[in-house]
Structure formats: C-alpha cells, structure tokens
Simulated scan of single mutants.
Amino acid sequence: MRVRSEQLAGHLSKQLLPVYLVCGEELLITQECCDDIRQNCRAQGISEREVFNVDRSFDWGQLLDAGQSMSLFGERKLIELRLGDSKMDQKSSAILQEYLQHADGSNILLVSCGKLDSRSMNSKWVKALDNAGAVIQVWPVDRQHLNNWIMQRMRKIGLSADGDAVQLLADRVEGNLLAADQEISKLKILAGDQAITADVVANAVASSARYDVFKLIDTALAGNAGNALQMLNSLLAEGGEDIAMLGAVTREIRSLYQCAQQLEQGGGIDRVLDNARVWDKRKALYKSTLRRLKSVQLGKLLLLASRVDAAQKGQSKENSTVLFANLVSLLAGQKLSEVV
C-alpha cells in the first residue's frame, strides 16, 4: 500500500505493518518518517534494533540471517536496511524478495533510500515491499505549499504566527526545509511563547545577539571547542531552552552522520552535500568536519545526544549540562571527559 508522509502518523496510530519503504530526496521528512516508525515500534515493545548500511561490499546474506534469527530475548525486533544512494541489482533484489517471502511478521523491516525514479518504483523489489507493507514516497514541498508547511511546523511546537511572518520566513529559506526547521527552532528559542509576527521574524534574522545556537554549531564544526563551549555556557546562563538547543545540535549531527555514510559508500563530497541541501556558505564547515569525524564517531555522538535528552527530561540521573558540554566538545573534535 502507498502512504503519504503526512498520513503516516495517522496510519501508525491504527496499525504497524511488517515492512516499510521510505524513499525520497527531502532529507528532513524522510528522517522524520523513519523516526515515527521507530517510535511506534518502541511503543509496541519492539526495543531491539539491527541496522544494516548498504555499500558496495555489503553481504546481503546478513539480511536473511537477521530475519531468521531470534532476538536476544526471543522478542520482536526492528531491522533497518539503509540503502542510501546504493543501486539494487538483480542479486540484492532477489535476496530482499526472498526475505519477504519467508517473513512471518514477527520482525519489522524498515528500508530507507534516496529518490527512486519511475523505473525503480516499478521494479520487482519495490512492488514486493509495496505488497508486503507500505511505501512512503516523500516529495519535496513546492513553493505554493511551503507556507502551509511552515505554519503546521510552528503549531507542532506550540508557536503561533501570522501570515506575514510565515511569508517572510518562506522567502528567507527558499524551499530548504532543513533551513526552515532550523529557523523555526531559532524562533522558539528566541521568542518562547510570544506570538510570531513579521517583525519578530525580521528581528530574529537580523539579530545582533552575541551568541545563538546556530553560531554555536558552526563554531563547533569549525573545530573551535573553546569558543563553542563558551557559547553554550552563555546560552544556558541566559535561560536558553536547552531541549530546543539540543534538537538543533542533534539534527546537525544526524545530517553529518548521513553524509559520512554516503561518503564511505563511495559518494563524491560535493554531490553528497548537495543531496543533503547544505548551504554553499556552510559546505566548507561540513567538509572539514567530515574529514575529522567518520560515521562511527558521529553515530556515537547521536547516542550521546540521546543521553543528553534523557537527562534533560529527568529520565536519568546524569548531569545534562555536563553531557551537553561533552557533546559540543566532541563535535568540535576535542574530548572533554570520559562520557562515551
């Protein structure tokens, strides 16, 4: 079956199918669709997860083994197959179809990849996934629908905005959803519960504030741990919303992680960054960071970010401020203390 990305939450509230394919070039939405499926799995008690990142050397037999093997405690598990930009050949297509033929629904398979052309969408492996579960094909948000997308995004995090404010923000981000999401997060931090008007957006854009979380991120990516930590301490001291700030940092790390995976699969750096919709003025920061941090290290940073999140929400006894400082320091390439 086919499910639109905006329908996925409603679909998951009613059922969890054994197989999902999430494909598309809009990185933010594909990430969030996958996150929704993972969260629904956890809500249904599926806590174990196996992740396979497909590259030219990937052993497809691992997928069959994962489907046949029981989890550590004999429970259901989520199997993630991340294709990235890898192309499916006849052999990999046959193995994936074999997995589906033997799957009994005990485990959940989540396949994710970039944009698929019409030929790929009509291939045997995609049709097999479609028949066994659901295909979520993510489309870019065009200009005429961008304002509505921004408005819904703001409401989701408790912001209210007038039409002029939304129009100004849409003009600023020029269709880049990752940039729009960052700007909305910035407005949440700067404006709090204040109603968002065009003046608020303009002031946020032209803000001459000494530090903001996005300057902090760029400073960390530049490898300047000392200044990044000073910015973090100042933001926290000024009463910055630590959960929203962590969200911005985590999204940046997740984007870097996916770029690193594609590079390790043989992708060219410029194409990878273009696919991730990294702004031209930030590409140098990304390139230097990706030379310094590989996917394994960035994966560990995502795990550390989840610990910061748990500590911020009172779900662990760890010190969220210390963990956050270590996260920023490690992103900048400097180890602050033994936390990972």
Rank of each mutant, 00 (worst) to 15 (best):
L96C: 09
C34M: 12
R271W: 08
K87Q: 12
L116K: 14
S47D: 15
S120H: 07
E80P: 00
L232A: 10
L293C: 05
L285V: 07
A311V: 13
R4H: 10
S71K: 12
F214E: 15
L187Y: 05
L327P: 02
R271G: 05
L331D: 07
V51C: 06
S57D: 13
D218E: 14
I157N: 06
I37Q: 00
M151E: 15
A325Y: 13
L83T: 04
A248F: 03
H11Q: 11
L17C: 05
K186H: 04
I217G: 01
G84P: 06
G10P: 04
A66W: 00
E264V: 04
E183T: 08
K14Y: 02
Q68P: 01
L330Q: 07
T289R: 15
A222K: 14
G314E: 15
E318R: 13
R119H: 04
V249D: 04
N233G: 02
I243T: 08
L8Q: 03
S13R: 14
V166L: 12
L236V: 12
F214Q: 15
E174I: 12
E252S: 11
L64Q: 01
K124P: 01
E75Q: 14
A310G: 05
L301P: 02
S337A: 11
I95C: 01
C34G: 09
T289K: 11
S306C: 04
A225Y: 08
K127D: 07
K300N: 09
S295V: 08
Q137H: 10
E238M: 06
N107D: 00
N275W: 08
R119P: 02
A248K: 12
I253G: 02
V213L: 10
L232G: 03
G175F: 08
A180I: 11
A209Y: 04
G158A: 05
V328E: 11
A206I: 03
Q90K: 15
S320N: 10
D164W: 02
L263K: 14
A161T: 12
E80C: 01
T250D: 07
Y99Q: 08
Y99A: 01
